[in-house]
Deep mutational scan, measured.
Amino acid sequence: TGEEYIAVGDFTAQQVGDLTFKKGEILLAIEKKPDGWWIAKDAKGNEGLVPRTYLEPYS
């Protein structure tokens, strides 16, 4: 299990392996990579890379 984050903006996948999401979606951070791209999972179970700058902790 990971930590929940809320998307603060829309993001469209730029390449294969990225995860597209919309502002307000809750994402589960699976792995926090030091380069600023995290592996996350959305509510539908889709998994991919997301930019850290689009996420804020969800409580």
Rank of each mutant, 00 (worst) to 15 (best):
12 T>D: 11
4 E>Q: 14
28 L>I: 15
24 G>S: 04
16 V>G: 09
21 F>V: 08
36 G>W: 04
56 E>Y: 10
16 V>Y: 11
18 D>M: 15
52 R>D: 10
40 A>I: 07
12 T>M: 11
10 D>V: 03
32 K>Q: 08
21 F>E: 00
25 E>G: 04
37 W>P: 03
55 L>G: 00
10 D>Y: 05
11 F>N: 02
57 P>M: 07
9 G>C: 15
53 T>P: 07
50 V>I: 05
48 G>E: 01
34 P>A: 14
19 L>A: 01
5 Y>W: 11
2 G>N: 11
26 I>Y: 05
56 E>Q: 12
4 E>G: 07
46 N>H: 09
12 T>C: 12
41 K>C: 08
52 R>K: 13
23 K>L: 07
33 K>P: 07
15 Q>P: 02
57 P>W: 07
9 G>N: 14
19 L>V: 02
27 L>T: 00
26 I>P: 02
18 D>V: 15
39 I>W: 14
33 K>Y: 11
55 L>H: 01
17 G>R: 06
40 A>D: 00
6 I>F: 06
41 K>H: 06
43 A>C: 11
23 K>M: 08
15 Q>W: 08
33 K>A: 09
51 P>Q: 09
47 E>D: 06
24 G>E: 02
46 N>P: 02
5 Y>P: 00
12 T>Y: 13
49 L>D: 04
56 E>N: 07
21 F>D: 00
57 P>G: 05
53 T>L: 11
41 K>A: 08
53 T>V: 13
34 P>G: 11
35 D>S: 09
50 V>S: 01
6 I>W: 06
42 D>L: 03
1 T>N: 12
26 I>A: 03
54 Y>F: 12
38 W>N: 00
53 T>C: 15
33 K>T: 09
45 G>D: 05
59 S>K: 12
13 A>M: 06
18 D>N: 11
56 E>H: 10
51 P>H: 14
35 D>L: 05
37 W>K: 07
39 I>Q: 06
14 Q>C: 13
26 I>M: 07
41 K>V: 10
18 D>Q: 15
42 D>S: 06
46 N>L: 08
29 A>S: 06
58 Y>A: 08
47 E>M: 15
49 L>P: 04
6 I>E: 04
11 F>A: 01
15 Q>N: 14
41 K>I: 12
36 G>N: 06
11 F>Y: 14
31 E>Q: 12
37 W>Y: 08
18 D>G: 15
15 Q>S: 13
24 G>Q: 02
5 Y>A: 00
2 G>F: 15
25 E>L: 03
27 L>V: 05
29 A>Q: 03
40 A>P: 01
41 K>M: 11
9 G>F: 15
48 G>D: 01
51 P>C: 14
49 L>M: 11
48 G>T: 01
26 I>D: 00
37 W>F: 08
50 V>M: 02
10 D>L: 02
17 G>V: 04
15 Q>M: 10
19 L>Q: 01
1 T>E: 13
15 Q>V: 09
28 L>H: 09
7 A>R: 01
39 I>V: 13
29 A>R: 04
51 P>M: 09
50 V>D: 02
28 L>K: 09
36 G>D: 06
30 I>D: 01
59 S>N: 14
46 N>A: 08
58 Y>Q: 06
43 A>H: 10
15 Q>I: 09
52 R>Y: 14
48 G>A: 02
41 K>S: 07
17 G>A: 05
57 P>T: 07
13 A>W: 04
56 E>S: 10
25 E>W: 10
7 A>E: 00
25 E>S: 09
2 G>Q: 12
39 I>M: 11
25 E>A: 12
54 Y>R: 08
30 I>Y: 05
34 P>N: 12
1 T>D: 12
30 I>H: 03
46 N>G: 07
53 T>G: 13
36 G>H: 05
48 G>M: 02
11 F>K: 03
32 K>I: 08
26 I>K: 07
16 V>I: 12
8 V>R: 09
49 L>R: 15
45 G>N: 06
14 Q>F: 10
23 K>W: 06
33 K>M: 10
20 T>M: 05
11 F>L: 04
5 Y>M: 06
51 P>S: 07
52 R>I: 11
8 V>T: 11
47 E>H: 10
37 W>H: 05
30 I>E: 02
36 G>K: 04
29 A>F: 08
5 Y>Q: 01
45 G>R: 02
25 E>N: 08
28 L>Y: 14
38 W>V: 06
13 A>N: 04
14 Q>T: 13
54 Y>V: 08
25 E>C: 07
8 V>E: 02
24 G>P: 01
9 G>T: 14
8 V>D: 01
27 L>H: 00
2 G>M: 13
29 A>K: 03
41 K>R: 15
46 N>R: 10
9 G>H: 15
42 D>W: 02
47 E>V: 15
52 R>S: 15
49 L>F: 14
48 G>V: 03
45 G>P: 00
32 K>M: 09
20 T>E: 07
14 Q>R: 15
42 D>V: 02
40 A>R: 01
2 G>H: 14
50 V>W: 01
4 E>C: 15
3 E>L: 11
54 Y>K: 10
42 D>T: 05
18 D>Y: 15
23 K>I: 08
49 L>E: 05
4 E>F: 15
37 W>D: 03
22 K>Y: 10
52 R>A: 15
20 T>C: 07
16 V>H: 11
15 Q>Y: 10
26 I>Q: 03
30 I>A: 02
38 W>S: 00
33 K>E: 05
40 A>C: 15
50 V>F: 01
50 V>Y: 00
17 G>K: 04
22 K>H: 09
50 V>C: 06
55 L>I: 08
19 L>W: 01
25 E>M: 09
8 V>G: 04
4 E>K: 14
43 A>I: 10
28 L>D: 02
6 I>V: 10
11 F>H: 06
26 I>E: 01
35 D>Y: 07
28 L>G: 03
33 K>G: 12
7 A>Q: 01
55 L>F: 05
50 V>N: 01
43 A>W: 10
47 E>Q: 14
58 Y>V: 11
27 L>F: 07
55 L>D: 02
41 K>Q: 10
51 P>G: 05
9 G>P: 01
43 A>N: 10
28 L>F: 12
56 E>V: 14
55 L>C: 04
34 P>S: 13
31 E>W: 12
38 W>M: 08
58 Y>C: 09
31 E>R: 11
54 Y>Q: 08
54 Y>H: 14
